[in-house]
């Protein structure tokens, strides 16, 4: 499968939204003073767990105080 045959017009929005979500989570992680558990671990989860990572961070990792 070569790069030409991939329908970028359809896939691109998906990738962009995912990157925005990851970016928002990372920005939030750097601004928040403390999280549930170590910060570097959350950074790893956000970057590696491509779709679920940021969601889990926002629900579990963030401490709203």
């Amino acid at each position: 499968m070569d790069l030409e045959s991939i329908p970028w017009m359809l896939i691109l929005p998906f990738i962009i939204i995912q990157l925005i979500l990851m970016l928002v989570a990372i920005i939030d992680l750097t601004r928040v003073s403390n999280t549930n558990g170590p910060k570097w671990l959350w950074a790893l989860i956000i970057v590696l767990g491509n779709l679920i990572g940021p969601i889990i961070y926002f629900i579990v990792g963030r401490r709203n105080e």
């Binding site: 939204i17 925005i20 979500l21 928002v24 989570a25 939030d28 779709l51 940021p54 969601i55 926002f58």
Partner: peptide, 12 residues
């Protein structure tokens, strides 16, 4: 950031 990430999750 709830105003940002919740719409993004549903969009995805």
């Amino acid at each position: 950031f709830k105003i940002l990430w919740i719409p993004l999750v549903f969009l995805l």
